[in-house]
Design a binder for these strands. Structure first.
Length: 580
DNA sequence: GCCGTTTTCGGCCCGACTGTTTTCAGTCG
């Protein structure tokens, strides 16, 4: 079993323990173990039977080591098994509903034996919750909304999960001889912020007539498969243990491009493309672009040939949503989309001073290793108590430490000072101006803690932006992908004002946030907002998440000049809202 | 349940806000 799966099972066990009302420190130790496993490079499978080696990994002690051994041998371990027998696996989905915590779930289970979102929905409709303590009309209304949101997202997966699965499976495929091309198509290739399933296209000698059956058999023997859904000559579908569905198509090399184009989509892009083909006397299918009159093939081997035969420049998959890209490709006016290498700095990061995992120096070295010219340390302010947020005194002391590291780096990378301040319910920032004045980067964060009615929420953010030290607005929609819809406030009004004031809005690249997402990025760009892309790194490895944010920038048609941190250090600081 | 040490057990994560309350439990970051 791979580390990610082990970590996930421990995480789930922590959730179950919470519902069961277990000791909070015991729960935390499960979560810490899960985190630790996810960030170690040691493969736990390899050492699952060596308790001593296991216990060398931080947060793993005697019990956790034996849990991991049992997991490797039997696929489960006893605390988890017992809890699942008691509550059932579906109870965990209740935790995904905003406002639903372990105590509420325990209450619902004890009083009504509610063990799934479906149960909860039925109980609400039957009015069974009305007499429960702490279930007023507003609470129930919120739950209904939460269920609705949940249903919209259910069955979709975050990009990092899909990426990891795609990479692991591709590695398995690469071990087979005779495969020339392996491509993940579908919404994954288009860079959608979540994916429903993976469409994987393969071709090469191994996919030709005589070998196809053996290749399909090899595919269906992939160890991480939970169940095979279909197993034919040219297509194998299966569900992974993570519940992600994968469709693998074996294709002849001669029509690989046509299939790639077809299965990349989007549907709407393809429809428009087929109409265009017809006008030229062609018909476009997953097999080829062919002449209508005699069926002779015009292009099929590569995407470039197909687009070219239709009088179009090749269109990057990120743009294939029928939002004007076909017209632009015809006029040769497709934008030169921003790329990973254009980004020169990441100015939102945390350290062990609050809830980060690494030191200032470690974060700086990691940013340098990525080739960045600058970065910033922006730990939390005191209001986020759980993170050990900084008060004025600690913030000043931290500032000195950041400056010291900046000196130590000797110009190899600039380390900016900064802070992520909380916006209080009244719109004020939770640190005094004289402290903020000392910071290079002041990020005002819209945290959901203060979820208020629409008008108040909007006013609160607008007021916060009036503080002249606030330079970047973070979590500008407050959403958490697959878990919570955006906060309810007037985003267009906020973006208008941000553009006027020169407050930059942040595209957070964390795979579970992608705060603005492609749609709102487009909106921010139209309104003339300054845009900054950051990772909100809590660990050196989180800098890698920048790729997820970049995909959304590309989907929003953004180029290098549209994003502030493509600038060199000095110009970047100068491009931010000027300090008073 | 882990860790660190005081080698046998105590410490580990806190405060604002909502929706229900009439003084507070539960969620969230």
């Amino acid at each position: 079993m791979d580390n990610r799966s082990i970590a996930q099972l421990l995480e789930e066990t922590a959730d179950l323990l919470e519902i069961d009302g277990a000791d909070s420190f015991r729960i935390r130790s499960y979560r810490r173990a899960a985190e630790s496993i996810q960030s170690t490079t040691i493969s736990l499978s390899d050492i699952a039977h060596d308790a001593r080696q296991l216990q060398e990994i931080p947060a793993i002690g005697k019990s956790m080591a034996s849990n991991i051994e049992a997991l490797e041998d039997t696929g489960t371990f006893s605390p988890r098994k017992e809890l699942l027998e008691k509550y059932g696996a579906t109870i965990l989905e209740l935790l995904k509903l905003p406002g639903m915590g372990p105590k509420t779930i325990a209450l619902l289970w004890d009083s009504l034996h509610i063990a799934s979102v479906q149960d909860l929905e039925t109980a609400i409709k039957a009015g069974k919750l009305d007499n429960l303590p702490r279930f007023g009309p507003k609470h129930i209304e919120n739950l209904k909304k939460a269920i609705e949101d949940y249903r919209q997202h259910t069955g979709r997966f975050l990009l990092n999960v899909a990426d990891a699965e795609a990479e692991a499976f591709s590695a398995y495929l690469r071990r087979l001889d005779g495969l020339k091309q392996i491509t993940v198509a579908g919404s994954w290739r288009r860079g959608r912020e979540t994916v429903g399933d993976l469409d994987i296209l393969i071709s090469g000698p191994a996919c030709e007539e005589d070998n196809a059956a053996a290749t399909a058999k090899y595919v269906a023997a992939y160890p991480a498969i939970a169940s095979v859904l279909a197993h034919g000559q040219n297509k194998v579908s299966f569900r992974l243990r993570s519940n992600l569905q994968v469709d693998v198509r074996l294709l002849p090399e001669s029509s690989y491009g046509a299939a790639l184009q077809y299965f990349t989509g989007s549907k709407s892009h393809n429809v428009t493309l087929r109409q265009r083909a017809l006008k030229k006397g062609y018909t476009l299918s997953e097999y080829a672009l062919a002449r209508v009159k005699d069926g002779s093939v015009v292009a099929a081997r590569t995407e470039e040939e197909i687009y070219s035969a239709l009088g179009l420049d090749w269109i990057p998959p990120h743009l294939r949503e029928n939002l004007g890209e076909i017209e632009a490709a015809a006029k040769h006016t497709l934008p030169h989309l921003i790329e990973l290498k254009d980004i020169h700095g990441d100015v939102h990061a945390h350290t062990t001073a609050t809830d980060g995992r690494c030191s200032i120096r470690e974060m700086a070295e990691a940013a340098l290793a990525r080739g960045y010219q600058y970065m910033a340390i922006t730990d939390h302010s005191k209001n986020l108590a759980m993170t050990n947020g900084l008060d004025a005194r600690r913030a000043r002391a931290h500032l000195k430490r950041i400056r010291k590291v900046d000196e130590e780096m000797e110009g190899r990378i600039r380390v900016f000072t900064g802070i992520e301040v909380d916006i209080l319910a009244g719109g004020e920032l939770d640190l005094p101006d004289d402290v903020l004045a000392e910071m290079d980067i002041v990020i005002g964060a819209v945290h959901t803690l203060f979820n208020q009615p629409r008008k108040q929420m909007t006013d609160r953010i607008l007021r916060a932006m009036e503080n002249p030290y606030l330079r970047i607005l973070a979590h500008p929609t407050g959403r958490l992908l697959l878990r919570r819809e955006p906060l309810d406030f007037d985003l267009p009004a906020v973006l208008d004002r941000a553009a006027e004031l020169g407050v930059a809005v942040e595209q957070n690249s964390s795979p579970e946030r992608l705060d603005l997402g492609d749609v709102n990025l487009r909106l921010a760009h139209e309104k003339g907002c300054k845009i900054v892309i950051n990772t909100d790194a809590h660990h050196t490895t989180h800098y890698d998440n920048i790729q997820y944010g970049i995909r959304q920038l590309r989907r929003a048609w953004l180029t290098r000049k549209d994003v502030l941190n493509t600038l060199p250090a000095k110009k970047f600081l100068a491009a931010l809202r000027p300090k008073p």
